[in-house]
């Protein structure tokens, strides 16, 4: 597998994956809604000018056009900010893509508080909940550049529509090309017996890893799960860590209602109820600020994750 460490930003990794796929697969086309400079789909346009379409600031139509192209045998990747990719064009995603069994890959950028300076109007907290309502959609939120590259390739290979939730700027790496990254299979970053911290996306997974280190100093051994594939849920792994630890903390950069924590809680309630706790945005709207300010404001810090994990054990 290609080494994604060549990329300097998440946006380069996700668009790089689509460009590499497009070299092999002539069915791939790319649609953007006047945010191509933000995600770097301009690079796709340079590589394949005849297969790129800027639909302008008209997200609902972009989704419909993508659905029509899919019905003609093309596989569209489309991009806009996650808030518009979910809330703004939802009925089009539901009916023109989901209900009609078309295949469209939706890249929603700047999830949750990573929208930072664009502020509350641009923060998707409920995007995962919305995509979870559409039968057949795969949802991924990779936590590093390598897994973002690999999983983007894998959702294409799956042939099913997907929502790819990713920040644009900055990049972290926790995996190498040799690591096994499989769509639908979460990754155990540590295997402590006391509590499991399940997280998605770079912000929360990195926070969970740091929290686990802090907990270890207090004699608490945590399992950390990088749940890069939100849907379909890796139920084998969830059951395993529930049985192992009996305590699960779910950390998500979004809202509880319809989100990842509620999904896992619902699954376990039927089979193996365990004590659970949840870190999310609660009932708040977003607001403007840098990531440090927003992380502190919403409690998305390693310290708070560790505190919540510790409280769960009391």
């Amino acid at each position: 597998m290609k080494d994604a460490h060549v990329y300097s930003h998440y946006r380069d990794a996700v668009i790089g994956a689509v460009i590499d796929l497009a070299a092999e697969h002539k069915d791939i086309v790319f649609l953007d809604a006047d945010l191509s400079s933000c995600i770097g789909s301009t690079n796709f346009q340079k590589a394949y000018p005849d297969r790129f379409f800027n639909c302008g600031i008209a997200e609902a139509n972009m989704v419909g056009v993508a659905a029509g192209l899919s019905s003609m045998g093309f596989t569209p990747f489309i991009h806009t900010f996650g808030c518009f990719a979910s809330r703004r064009d939802y009925d089009q995603l539901f009916i023109s893509v989901g209900y009609t069994h078309q295949t469209v890959h939706v890249i929603g950028s700047d999830p949750g508080i990573t929208a930072q300076y664009n502020g509350g109007t641009h923060m998707p907290f409920e995007d995962i909940a919305l995509f979870r309502q559409i039968p057949g959609f795969t949802i991924i939120e990779p936590s590093d550049g390598q897994s973002l590259y690999e999983l983007t390739r894998q959702v294409y290979a799956s042939g099913k529509s997907s929502y790819i939730r990713t920040p644009r700027k900055g990049i972290e790496f926790r995996y190498t090309p040799e690591d096994k990254i499989v769509l639908g299979k979460g990754i155990e970053l540590s295997d402590g017996q006391d509590v499991a911290i399940i997280a998605t996306g770079s912000l929360m997974v990195s926070g969970a890893v740091a929290a686990a280190d802090a907990l270890k100093e207090k004699g608490i051994n945590a399992t950390v799960i990088d749940l890069h594939t939100v849907r379909p849920l890796d139920t084998d792994l969830i059951e395993k860590v529930a049985s192992r630890t009996g305590h699960i903390l779910v950390c998500e950069n979004g809202r509880y209602a319809g989100g990842i924590g509620e999904m896992i809680a619902g699954y376990l309630a039927e089979r193996n109820p365990v004590r659970m706790s949840f870190l999310n945005v609660g009932e708040r709207f977003g607001e403007v600020g840098n990531l440090k300010y927003l992380s502190d404001t919403f409690g998305f810090t390693a310290e708070n994750i560790a505190r919540k994990a510790e409280a769960l054990l009391k």
Partner: peptide, 18 residues
């Protein structure tokens, strides 16, 4: 779901041209 088929038709026409 009114309006949606029309966008799809645009996509289909585009696909035929491609």
């Amino acid at each position: 779901s009114l309006g949606q088929g029309f966008s799809a038709a645009v996509g289909i026409a585009l696909g035929q041209r491609l």
